[in-house]
């Protein structure tokens, strides 16, 4: 399925994920889910793991999905998607876009072995991870994607470990396409989804999706926070095509991490009377490492 550059860069708005869902105001994941659904089009099956997305989008009798939707357990969205793909193959039907979707908990912690298996077996499935950096659905518990310093209900003094680098782990499986994206640049996000769907084999897209409730910011700041995550170097934007890092988004003007941290309640304890504590310097160091590593 070769697509022209014009088609890839076109913005899609088909409302395949419609209004009426129960997400909080300014939810980054709801926005990301719609952008992904619209980019992938009607010929798509969504296999969604348990989590916020599944809870707020699929209550009976008025689901928000206008494409076939399959809810699975917390851990096995990738395995279910693999099964759907195998069934289509066995019935000799298709082609159809199969997208497994999950939050950061189901991707990096609970469902990791299913995803790893799916990548390893080489199913033609796109896995989309909505990264909101904690278990938001169950009450903001720490996950292995929670960044250094962030306060969650299980790390009230701030998280002591670094975030797991899932995109690189996925890429090390030797899959053909890995990309990172944020909700603020919808053109880029939709282009990556369309690019991924045009490639045969397992694909992985990692989307930073701010959670106003868990991150402690006002809903209107969701897009701005994503923008700052990119411009500080905390969340690098790149694609890994057949093991090669490419299309790295260069930072136009580098921003210190304080700007990113100050907007969010989960990092509030890092500033005592407006003055940053030593942990801020550590977070800046992470951002600097990213900038150096990906040549942002």
């Amino acid at each position: 399925m070769e697509q022209s550059a014009e088609e890839l860069n076109k913005i899609e708005k088909k409302d395949l994920f419609t209004s009426g869902h129960r997400a909080c105001g300014g939810c980054g994941q709801a926005l990301a889910a719609r952008l992904v659904a619209d980019a992938s089009g009607e010929n798509t099956i969504a296999c969604v793991a348990t989590g916020c997305l599944e809870v707020f989008s699929s209550p009976y009798p008025d689901p928000s999905w206008r494409i076939p939707f399959l809810h699975s357990l917390f851990e096995n969205a990738a395995a279910v998607a693999s099964g759907v793909e195998a069934a289509y193959k066995a019935l000799n039907k298709g082609p159809v876009n199969i997208i497994a979707q999950g939050g950061d908990g189901s991707t990096a912690d609970i469902g990791f072995q299913c995803i790893s298996g799916m990548f390893e077996r080489g199913h033609n499935v796109l896995y989309v991870c909505y990264d909101n950096e904690a278990y938001m659905n169950t009450g903001v518990q720490r996950s292995s994607f929670t960044p250094l310093g962030a306060r969650t209900s299980t790390t009230p003094m701030g998280n002591k470990t670094r975030k797991k680098n899932m995109p690189l782990l996925a890429a090390d499986h030797g899959i053909p396409y890995v990309a990172t994206a944020t909700v603020d640049d919808f053109r880029d996000l939709q282009r990556k989804v369309k690019t991924a769907l045009s490639i045969e084999g397992p694909k992985y897209i990692h989307i930073l999706a701010p959670c106003p409730l868990g991150w402690g910011h006002h809903g209107e700041l969701s897009v701005q926070i994503c923008r700052l995550a990119k411009d500080t170097g905390i969340f690098p934007i790149y694609e890994i095509i057949h093991g090669k890092v490419s299309n790295v988004r260069k930072i136009p003007v580098k921003v210190p991490v304080e700007e990113y941290l100050k907007l969010q309640g989960r990092f509030k304890h890092l500033f005592k009377k407006g003055q940053p504590t030593p942990e801020v310097a550590e977070i800046q160091e992470i951002a600097n490492q990213n900038i150096e590593r990906f040549n942002l």
Binding site: S19, G20, G25, G26, P212, G219, E220, S222, V223
Partner: peptide, 15 residues
Amino acid sequence: FDLDFCKGCGLCAKE
């Protein structure tokens, strides 16, 4: 605006 569904998050105003 479709005020039946708008949750008033203010993302549109901010952006």
